[in-house]
Design a protein around this nucleic acid. Sequence first.
DNA 1: GCTGTACGTTAACTCGTGTCAGTAACACGA
DNA 2: TCGTGTTACTGACACGAGTTAACGTACAGC
Lengths: 343, 343
Amino acid sequence: MNPARSKRPLQKDVAERAGVSRTTVSFVLNGVENIAIPDETRDRVLQAAAELGFRPNPMARGLRGGRSNVLGLLTSDIVTTPYSVEIVKGAQDAAMARGKTLLIIDNGGSEVAAVDAVEHFLEWRVDGLIFAAEYHQPYTPPPAAAAAPAVLVNCFVPPSDADRYLLPTILPDDVQGGATATGALIEAGHTRIGYINGPSERFPASRERLRGYRDALRTAGIAADDSLVREGDWWQESGTRHAASLLDLPEPPTAIFCANDWMAMGAYETARDRGLRIPHDLAIVGFDNRTEIADHLRPGLTTVALPYRQMGARAVEVLLDPAGQTRGVTERMPCPLVRRASV
Amino acid sequence: MNPARSKRPLQKDVAERAGVSRTTVSFVLNGVENIAIPDETRDRVLQAAAELGFRPNPMARGLRGGRSNVLGLLTSDIVTTPYSVEIVKGAQDAAMARGKTLLIIDNGGSEVAAVDAVEHFLEWRVDGLIFAAEYHQPYTPPPAAAAAPAVLVNCFVPPSDADRYLLPTILPDDVQGGATATGALIEAGHTRIGYINGPSERFPASRERLRGYRDALRTAGIAADDSLVREGDWWQESGTRHAASLLDLPEPPTAIFCANDWMAMGAYETARDRGLRIPHDLAIVGFDNRTEIADHLRPGLTTVALPYRQMGARAVEVLLDPAGQTRGVTERMPCPLVRRASV
DNA sequence: GCTGTACGTTAACTCGTGTCAGTAACACGA
DNA sequence: TCGTGTTACTGACACGAGTTAACGTACAGC
């Protein structure tokens, strides 16, 4: 009936072709220790398997052994922050490279759907769970998740739940990212550097990038001037507005660091309106490296990239590394500067 | 060892609790026909299953029956066109609703990776394959895909391969979309309507949206004027430039339809530069409904949405519907108008 | 020649479920 | 009493692989 199942070779076929028993094939292919198999036999088996293109049936394997070789990845709302799919891709590639299958479910931000998804994963006897968020935020996994090893990516268990859930956590290093962005401007000779932040209340990233900004100034021996710091709302328009207000200061900044690329785009608009050339009259650095924006602005926007792909890959590694389950360790992944032409 | 497998209830447990044999449980839960089971027994089994929270092990099920209940979704480069993940979500939801598991792999546009992915899917004995593209384009699946039922979404087998691969195909109705966008402007009283298209050579969508534009004009009895049609490159800047050139015509248009939202954003810029108010002095319609753009422009951009979610869902339906495998049927899904304030 | 041991191999069981063939109990008509 | 159905169920096998325990066989040592 199902053509997919009809003619695929089985261990039995490999055994027949190699002239040994099926058990021997299993031993050879799984590299079982403390069992003696002469090289000659081993080679024959391996060759037969290769010739037939044998691939073990993961269902049979998962049914028998405790290990299903499946990992479950639950992500909240990917669509609203499209670039976060990079986390998924990173996890996917890493899983594939290690011969694991990654099961992906996007719960669209719904808690009910999250519970369903975890249940679904557990049905498949997943070897581990990954919870990924579309932006750096607190998140508490459904209770059922306790039934399997888990890792958090781009999110963290809020302090109020931290006693119940102590999980390995992988986050972007927003402090370093903020410092790197600011540092790039300092290197270019700027000393009055404005900062248009995101909303600091709901977004840990905003708070941390601000900290990085201040750290970089302090390290460079530049006195912090809070009149140079504004809080936008991530949208382009707020970038335009705050950039204008910064440039209206008696001592205006010569450079502006924006906590995301949309606001940087807004700052570009302000510069254009005022006839300021970038980077000569005003240098700008963004954050997020949304290439559709950064590449397309003129001149290209120098910005800080979120290491989403690496974070996804690292999550898989931590999950599969038996020692990685030393629970509760938070890893910060560095955010590299992507140089274009706006500094 | 693996905590996930330890304490989950099995059919055996349900049978014990209901005081029947495991076979009976299997019959009841699978609703096997032409086997007599009195309601009283049936209810007891169902209740026992519910009380224990029994969920069948999909591996065992897939191993035994021909049906794995897994569908494979292969997508090319989601990240470059982030909104296309909606296709994935649509497919995911539809699959979940029908009790299927969706295996998703993004091959990042690599043909080698695509072959690997299909191989991976076949290992899992998938019941069907879905090939999804990030934008409407020709695509030829790897030959191995012939081993399972397949559906194409947002892509189609090019004529040169059409004799070898005749697959059900689901596409957005770009002609209708173009006509709808144009129609909205006509309804609003416009008769001179400019059109900034995408590149027509590489993109079927461009050609079809143009056709829709012309159809709508003809239907309304408006003479087509090719001087009102320009070909941009999808980027904002080309929208700005072509809008300017349209407005510089001796008889400038009072409305512009742009083949994507980025170019519409460019047209907004031109309008602003010239002090034209939208929609009073110039009406604009976009395409794609990229909410991050359309919602955030002032005034909000009226645009045509790609029915990605429905397309993904429909792919699953076609795949699971036995009659749906009447191969080679192309379905066009309607692109609805999303009204905001730019018309 | 006998026993012990290391080596190479395999039969047989296991995982959880679907499914076929079969059985026990009972009813009914001849 | 027998034969034939019908109802309500159950035993046993199958799916494809991993794993345990045991089986020869050959060779060494006595």
